[in-house]
């Protein structure tokens, strides 16, 4: 009995190891079929590259009339655990009325995120309700959830197609109050980066699309360096360009505290 249990544990262990190995390096030409493994890998590739990271971001927001606005900021990220909690700090430099505004997020996988906003003109540290994660991020066509990731458990996942280059996964929200019926993601088979996401409404019409326009390999990590989100109903779009991307900087935990709001840690910021 004991031997059998031991054997079973060993088998399970080997299986787990095999899965882990597959996660790291899938055999060439061998497609994954487990949709949960695919979306977990995509989540890691898109949001958890390295243990931490830093980048400069320029967002160009264009409305349907062609008028454009610009948001410039530096972003810092630190993973508490791969696939788990994360800390983000965003320091704005443009437009002028947002300059030195700092946005701090403690992302929790099992609870509401903690979010703070520092307004330098008033020297005010404001707490922001986690509330609706699908609210526009600083007036762009991106929503907060696009910036820090949507919880995997919020959708059911279904592998609808495996093409020569992509896994196509349909994600249906468990919460019926979502503003989309489902979203379809195209995941690159070699990098596991999502390269296209289509948000579909109740009439089966795609009303919002996010695309990876440019992907570069930075410090060994495939990285989306230009990303576009299009509002297919109104015609507006936002393009995010990432520059001076750096990974594995060893950013300490205490950078993501109230101290950073008043006193941004410039040594960790890209492009200064």
């Amino acid at each position: 009995m004991i031997r059998m249990a031991l054997k079973l544990t060993l088998v399970l262990g080997v299986l787990t190891l095999a899965t882990a190995a597959a996660l790291v390096r899938p055999a060439a030409g061998q497609d994954l079929t487990d949709v949960n493994a695919i979306v977990e890998r995509a989540n890691l590739a898109a949001y958890y590259a390295g243990d931490d990271g830093s980048a400069r971001v320029r967002m160009t927001i264009t409305d349907a009339q062609g008028r454009s606005r610009t948001r410039d900021f530096a972003i810092l990220r630190r993973d508490v655990a791969d696939g788990g909690d994360q800390d983000y700090a965003v320091l704005f430099s443009r437009p002028a009325d947002l300059r030195n505004t700092v946005f701090l997020v403690k992302k929790h996988v099992d609870a509401d995120d903690d979010r703070w906003l520092y307004l330098p003109g008033l020297d005010l540290v404001n707490r922001i309700a986690a509330g609706d994660k699908r609210t526009s991020f600083v007036g762009s066509h991106f929503v907060y959830e696009d910036v820090s990731g949507r919880g995997l458990e919020e959708d059911t996942h279904e592998l609808v197609e495996t093409t020569a280059t992509h896994y196509v996964v349909r994600n249906t929200p468990r919460d019926e109050g979502a503003d989309f019926a489902y979203w379809t993601v195209w995941i690159d088979k070699s990098t596991f980066l999502p390269t296209r996401m289509d948000y579909v409404d109740g009439t089966d019409e795609v009303f919002r699309r996010i695309e990876a326009v440019e992907v570069d390999v930075v410090d060994g990590y495939p990285t989306v360096t230009t990303m576009r989100v299009s509002d297919l109903r109104s015609g507006g779009e936002t393009v995010s360009e990432f520059s001076d991307v750096r990974y594995d900087l060893g950013i300490p935990e205490d950078v993501f505290t109230e101290r950073t709001l008043r006193n941004p840690p410039r040594r960790w910021l890209s492009g200064r």
Partner: peptide, 11 residues
């Protein structure tokens, strides 16, 4: 004291 409560912020 200030913190998150029921999807909002209480103080």
């Amino acid at each position: 004291a200030r913190g998150a409560l029921a999807g909002g912020i209480a103080h």
